[in-house]
Computed example of a mutant assay.
Amino acid sequence: MADSFFTPTDDQHTWQPTRATVGPWAPTMQHGGPPSALVVREAERRGAAAAEGPVDALRVSLDFFGPVTTDPVRVSGEVVRAGRSVTLVDVHLEQDGRTALRGSVWLVRRDTEGATPVVPGPESGLPGPEDLAPFEVWHFPYIEHFDWRVILGSTTQPGPAQVWARPLVPLVPDEEPTGLQRAVLIGDSGSGVSAELDWSDWSFVNVSLDVQLLRPMAPDWLLLDARTRLAGTGTGLTLTTLHDRAGVVGHVGQNLVVGRRG
């Protein structure tokens, strides 16, 4: 086990990926979740400094320009808009002088007075993670740095899935990940847990990741309620509803490029 997904370097904007970032497609290719979370972290730091009062990062749109390898990554950001209600930050993650991942994050003013109404959704009625046994079917580094508990679906058969998950190590050393960081760190796995194709024969890599949160997430566990649909055009779409212990907290969308491996 690595101690975190990334470790710092002598340059405060450059991070070294650990083995915890390695995904299922190649030993030199990161899973999409960790670098996406690093983009969110950079946006939150810049947005909080520019915002007029307390804010929560509730929406991110990410585009993958190509594979994110296990080489060092450099993150840079720019505040595009800073206002009383919302702040927008654009972030680029670069490797070897090229942009590998780009993200835009909206930070929304927090109502510290509790003056706005609460309209709750329906109770989920789903079992909690403590009622479920962990699974250990997949074996690649990223997956091994999480605790996974399955409600619905199979790790060896295609179809929709409902899976609780929580990271076992922080994104960066000595820092608790925020709600949106955890949402992308885990939510990028929606296409994996609800896969409709055999991983050994097919690749289904997402080129985008869009996450919207209703509110700040409760700490600890996050539930993915995921479904993948495929078209006969080499494309697919995964839609995931996110739950925390308080109920539905957000949604994730992933556009997939599908092709045979080898």
Rank of each mutant, 00 (worst) to 15 (best):
D3S: 15
S4F: 03
D10Y: 04
P17L: 01
V22I: 07
M29K: 04
Q30C: 04
G33P: 00
A37F: 05
V40I: 14
R41G: 04
E42S: 13
D56W: 00
L62K: 07
F64N: 06
T69A: 09
T69N: 08
G77R: 13
R84T: 05
S85L: 12
T87S: 10
E94S: 14
E94M: 10
Q95D: 08
D96W: 07
G103W: 01
L107A: 09
D111K: 11
T112Y: 03
S124C: 11
S124A: 14
G125A: 08
D131T: 15
D131Q: 15
L132G: 10
A133V: 11
P134A: 00
P141H: 00
Y142Q: 06
W148L: 00
I151E: 09
Q157R: 15
G159M: 10
P167Y: 01
P170K: 08
P170T: 10
P173F: 12
E176N: 02
Q181K: 04
R182I: 06
A183I: 07
L185H: 09
S189N: 02
S189C: 01
S194H: 05
A195S: 12
D198V: 11
F204D: 02
N206H: 14
S208G: 14
L214A: 15
R215H: 01
R215N: 00
P216D: 11
W221L: 02
D225G: 04
G236V: 11
L237A: 09
L242F: 07
D244W: 12
A246P: 06
Q254K: 02
N255R: 07
V258A: 09
